[in-house]
């Protein structure tokens, strides 16, 4: 038996044999095991697609009680077919340096990791502003990159491409912390309607609805607080109307302004 030193995953090849009589050929590796009945003296054909998992194989010809064996190495097909593109995070605050990262593992059509170096291009394109692109060569089948998030909120497409195969991930570039949080108050019957101005981050992006704004009213040693979600860019709440009460606002760790009701700002 004369074995080829290496074969490409999924390709056809033949193994010439010597001698005569019937025998059995086994090709056994961790990822695959094949058996072919052979007539010694004739070559054994392994059809395309029969041996497709990359790795080290042991080929054995068994004829009666005797056998002979040899090593066979199956290498990944050279053309990428699948990219495992690990892109994180799925949400990233705007304007974050190296805030987005992607790693690509390149596989052939048989899910063998292609370890020969090849270029992978990464491109991040948002709804506004220029796109960012770079090309990285794989090492041991993997390429990775880090990219800044845009300054405007919105969904960005993060595309990895290798050998004509492209995979896209969507990254939500989301507003950062509220910036310049301010409130105002108006009487509303027996109560005081306190509401924020439009809540934006420092880049002017509106803070998403549902974000909690905490209102605190202090009056005569008593305190009234409420965690209120932003709805349609503002948060509002009715609070007790005490003349001389101070009302402040905060969101997370960001504090806003403070007003005094009935005593001017």
């Amino acid at each position: 038996m004369t074995l080829p030193q290496t074969v490409t995953a999924g390709s056809a090849f033949s193994v010439p044999t010597s001698g005569s009589g019937p025998a059995v050929l086994y090709i056994v590796g961790p990822d695959q095991a094949l058996r072919r009945d052979v007539q010694l003296g004739n070559p054994v054909s392994i059809a395309a697609g029969d041996l497709y998992n990359a790795g080290e194989y042991l080929a054995i010809i068994v004829a009666g009680s005797s056998s002979s064996s040899g090593e066979l190495e199956v290498t990944p097909a050279p053309h990428p077919d699948t990219l495992s593109f690990l892109a994180t995070p799925s949400r990233v605050p705007v304007g974050l340096h190296n805030g987005i990262n992607g790693a690509v593992y390149v596989f052939d059509a048989y899910h063998n990791l292609i370890v020969t170096p090849m270029p992978v291009s990464f491109e991040l394109s948002g709804s506004s502003g220029p796109s960012q692109a770079r090309t990285i060569t794989t090492s041991h089948g993997v390429a990775w990159t880090e990219i800044d998030s845009a300054s405007k909120q919105g969904s960005a497409k993060f595309i990895a491409q290798a050998g004509g195969i492209a995979t896209t991930r969507v990254i939500d570039e989301v507003p950062g912390d509220p910036c310049g949080l301010t409130i105002s108050a108006q009487p509303d019957g027996a109560k005081l309607r306190v509401q924020t101005a439009l809540v934006r981050d420092c880049s002017g992006n509106p803070i998403p609805d549902g974000t909690i704004v905490t209102f605190t009213e202090n009056y005569n040693g008593a305190q009234t607080t409420a965690d209120v979600p932003i709805k349609k860019d503002i948060a509002q709440i009715d609070m007790p109307a005490y003349s001389g009460a101070t009302i402040s606002v905060a969101s997370g760790v960001v504090a806003g302004n403070e007003i005094r009701w009935g005593g001017g700002r």
Binding site: L86, T88, N101, A103, H140, G141, W144
Partner: peptide, 14 residues
């Protein structure tokens, strides 16, 4: 160990 992905979700080893 030859690669630790930035997200911490994969490690490659030879």
């Amino acid at each position: 160990i030859v690669f630790y992905s930035p997200d911490g979700l994969s490690i490659q080893m030879i």
